Computed example of a mutant assay.
Amino acid sequence: MMEEAELCFPQLLNVSCKKRTYAHSEKMFIYIVLSSMSLLTASLNLLVIISISHFRQLHTPTNLLLLSLAVSDFLVGLFVTPFHILLIEPCWFLGDLVCVMYYFLSFITVYASVLNMVLISVDRYVAICDPLHYPTRITQNRVQICVVLFWVYSVFYSFMLLHDNLIQPGRYNSCYGECVINVVGAVGIVLVFIIPVSTIIILYVRVFVVAVSQARAMRSHIAAVTLQRSVTVTVKKSEMKAARNLGVVVAVFLMCYCLYFCVTVSGSDHTIGSPTEVFSSFLIFLNSCLNPVIYAFLYPWFRKSVKLIVTLEILQPNSCMINVL
């Protein structure tokens, strides 16, 4: 009877998984942290989505990239984090198909976030290093096409990685009551981490070098500028401020994801519910939660938009035309 009580499915003595045991205090701490983070992540990113979608002044190529990033972060807070809480339970009772679909959605959101960061880095690179051609090269339509293509690629790539698992859910489970998948790790690390992160770092190093040189040039000629020159300087300053703000977003992303992938490939215990797995997953959830917090501190338009949303002023006629910049 004691052995049956420790099984996920006591009626299946020979094929049922044994229940994992956790300290009650540790389990409650994980539940509280992840539940709070899930609610906060979904709520804040929903505010970003409503802000950029509703107010026409915010319909810019750069903000469209932030919108795409907010969508992926919103999905993390709404679906990925809550289902991860269920994975920490002693047994998985939702079935093999739900298990695979959870990982499928997780992979899509992670890959979409990485690709969005690459697009943001390219956007800032062109804006700072080739500002004269920025309006013609980075257009609204081109950014929309790139965002759609990258989301489609994220779905396709996730499907390819989980193809065997989707065709036959649960094929890698060793017993009833667990949620296990199998993917080709080396390919994923190269395509989803090494190449994109290297691209992001190279582009932002170049942006930083050019921004510093432009700042020095503006300081040396600031006393002799004409009115037309002053407008040009103002535009350059605004572009560099945008690059700095987005640089903070990219830096936080790199810190969270680099630690996540380092922990993933470290060879340590990465089974569901292990301290290593909980910590690495927490980094991904933390990044999705921090992005809108960064916007709140760095972008005045976001703070003003949130105020209009919370006070329901966006429900008034022509509220989309309100000046939020």
Rank of each mutant, 00 (worst) to 15 (best):
L46Y: 12
R56G: 00
H84W: 12
C91Y: 11
H133I: 13
L132F: 09
L97E: 10
W92Y: 02
I128P: 02
V118R: 00
G95K: 04
F104N: 04
C99D: 03
V48D: 08
L75K: 09
S106Q: 10
N116G: 03
D73H: 14
I88L: 11
L87N: 05
Y125A: 12
P90M: 15
Y102A: 08
N45C: 06
S106P: 00
F55V: 10
Y125Q: 10
V80D: 02
L115I: 09
L64S: 11
F104V: 05
L87R: 02
L87Q: 09
A70H: 02
P82Y: 13
P135K: 06
L46P: 01
V118D: 00
L132Q: 12
G95Q: 03
C91S: 11
L64I: 02
C129V: 03
C99R: 05
V122Y: 12
L78K: 14
F104H: 10
A127G: 01
M117D: 03
P135Y: 07
Y102D: 09
S72W: 11
Y125W: 15
L65F: 04
N116L: 00
L65Y: 07
N116D: 02
I49M: 13
H59G: 04
V100Y: 12
F107K: 06
L115D: 13
L94E: 14
Y134N: 05
E89Q: 15
I85Y: 06
F93I: 08
L67V: 09
A127S: 10
H84S: 12
P135D: 04
I50M: 15
H54F: 14
L64Q: 13
L115N: 14
V76R: 01
L66N: 13
P90I: 15
I88E: 13
C129F: 01
L65T: 13
D123M: 00
S72D: 11
D123E: 10
L97H: 04
S121M: 07
D123I: 00
H54K: 14
I85E: 04
F93W: 11
H54S: 08
T109Q: 15
L46H: 03
Y111W: 13
L47Q: 05
D123T: 01
L97M: 08
I120E: 05
N45W: 08
L119A: 03
N45I: 06
S51P: 10
V80M: 00
P82M: 10
P131E: 04
L86A: 11
F93P: 00
V126W: 05
V118N: 00
P61M: 10
L58F: 04
F93Q: 10
